[in-house]
Computed example of a mutant assay.
Amino acid sequence: MATDFSTEISHLRTTMASVREVTDLEKLAARITELEGKAGAPDLWDDPEAAQQVTSALSRSIAERDRILEMDSRIDDLEVLVELGTEEGDEATMAEAERELASITKAVGELEVRTLLSGEYDERGAVITIRSGAGGVDAADFAHMLSRMYARWAERHGYPVKFLDTSYAEEAGLKSTTFEIDVPYAYGNLSVEGGTHRLVRISPFDNQGRRQTSFAAVEVIPIIESTDHIEIPENEIKVDVFRSSGPGGQSVNTTDSAVRMTHIPTGIVVSMQDEKSQIQNRAAALRVLQSRLLLQRKAEEAAAKKELAGDIKASWGDQMRSYVLQPYQMVKDLRTGHEVGTPQAVFDGDIDDFIEAGVRWRRAGGADAE
Rank of each mutant, 00 (worst) to 15 (best):
R131S: 14
L199S: 00
S59L: 11
L35P: 07
P343C: 09
T213K: 10
E79I: 09
A357V: 02
R124S: 15
A95V: 01
H263I: 06
V19L: 13
V239A: 12
I230Q: 00
S118F: 14
G358L: 05
E225K: 11
D333N: 13
R156Y: 13
R148I: 04
K27D: 15
V241R: 13
L190M: 06
R124W: 04
R243M: 12
G310I: 01
R260P: 04
P247Q: 08
T266N: 12
S245I: 11
R201N: 05
V259R: 12
G349I: 02
R67F: 06
A41L: 03
S147C: 15
V19D: 02
R282A: 09
S203F: 11
H197E: 08
L293T: 09
I130A: 05
G135Y: 14
E87R: 04
E21Q: 09
T196R: 11
I32R: 04
L35S: 01
G133H: 07
A102S: 13
D182E: 06
A169C: 05
R20Y: 10
F242R: 13
R124G: 00
A97D: 02
Y121I: 07
I268M: 11
G37L: 10
D256E: 14
D72K: 08
V269F: 14
E34L: 15
S103I: 08
P42R: 13
D240K: 05
N281H: 12
L289P: 02
P265V: 03
Q52M: 15
T177L: 13
Q319R: 14
H263V: 09
T196K: 03
G349K: 01
V220Q: 03
A284E: 12
A92K: 08
S214L: 10
W316A: 12
F179D: 02
I232S: 00
M330P: 01
E219M: 09
W316L: 14
R260I: 05
A369L: 13
A169F: 11
T105Y: 06
